[in-house]
Design a protein around this nucleic acid. Structure first.
Length: 282
DNA sequence: AGTAGGACCTGGTGGC
DNA sequence: TGCCACCAGGTCCTAC
């Protein structure tokens, strides 16, 4: 499940291959992969555009175009972006194929958007704004930016009584944190996932802030977490899964205290935690 | 206004 | 072996 570290890894592997290249006419295999505009306008608008840069905001991949527009990609659950030879046929899960201008001495290739569960989306925006993507327009602060501090986190959490785990998944409070890194950050800061956000004490919030920054940076260092699907643009798996303390380890012993790790459903999502290291207060 | 929960979607897994 | 229920979860939408 691509979260901030996986999307950042994708961006870093896409950038050197994509910058300066020009898109051909996209072939849309599944219309629902296009968020906006409608597929015909998407193809007309993207063809002939040259990439000037590749960036990230939250879990969104931002591909800047020379005429001022922007191609936005959200991988959601199982989305992948990969380079394939121009003549390569689509795989069963290929949703969009975008031909690329050749680089000197290189073979002709295309950018494939592959997505097993078809939740992922491509958008073409006329400028650097968020356009119709409400999720992008309402994103909270980037957790690895200097502007994100323990104070900022404290202010965001003080306004909600939802469980802290649920609040961390709210992209309008902090951008880019998903289920895996939220569970890891809560374990590292010794906070029970069901704790109401506004009930956290300043010391806990300081620890949580430091843990969020730490787990995200470690995830990037290991080039992301791969369970089933994640591959970066060069086709490589991530390596962070072996460093996870709680996520996906229900029933196994806690590496810190040996207690059996537990699973709890909050907001319809699994939370993995250690009841001994992360006791529920009150 | 804030919160909760369902819908979307498909492949893998485990139980019978 | 075959079938089926269940699970994975980011975001949007609706209902309370």
């Amino acid at each position: 499940m691509p979260e901030l570290p996986e999307v950042e890894t994708m961006v870093r592997t896409l950038r050197p291959h994509l910058a300066g290249r020009t898109f051909g006419v996209p072939r849309i295999i599944r219309d629902s992969a296009i968020g906006s505009p409608e597929p015909h306008a998407f193809c007309l608008g993207l063809a002939g555009q040259t990439v000037t840069g590749v960036g990230r905001r939250g879990k969104y991949i931002l591909v800047d175009l020379a005429l001022g527009g922007r191609l936005v990609v959200h991988l959601r659950m199982t989305g992948q972006v990969a380079f394939r030879p121009l003549a390569a046929p689509p795989t069963p899960h290929t949703r969009v194929i975008i031909p690329l201008s050749p680089v000197a001495g290189g073979e002709s290739e295309s950018l494939h958007f592959i997505d097993q569960r078809t939740f992922g989306k491509l958008y073409l925006l006329p400028d650097q704004g968020a356009g119709p993507i409400t999720g992008l327009a309402t994103l909270g602060p980037e957790p690895l930016d200097a502007a994100f501090t323990a104070k900022v986190l404290q202010r965001a959490l003080a306004t909600t009584s939802r469980p802290i785990k649920t609040a961390l998944l709210d992209q309008t409070l902090v951008a880019g944190v998903g289920n895996i890194y939220a569970d890891e950050a809560l374990f590292r800061s010794a906070i029970h996932p069901a704790t109401p956000a506004k009930a956290l004490r300043p010391g806990q919030i300081k620890r949580l802030y430091a843990a969020i920054v730490q787990v995200l940076n470690e995830g990037i260092l290991h080039r992301g977490t791969t369970f089933m699907h994640f591959r970066n643009a060069e086709g490589e798996s991530g390596g962070h899964q072996v460093h996870l303390a709680v996520y996906g380890r229900t029933g196994q012993p806690c590496g810190t205290c040996g207690a059996t790790l537990q699973r709890l459903v909050l907001s319809g999502r699994s939370s993995h935690f250690c009841h001994h290291c992360q006791p529920q207060i009150g």
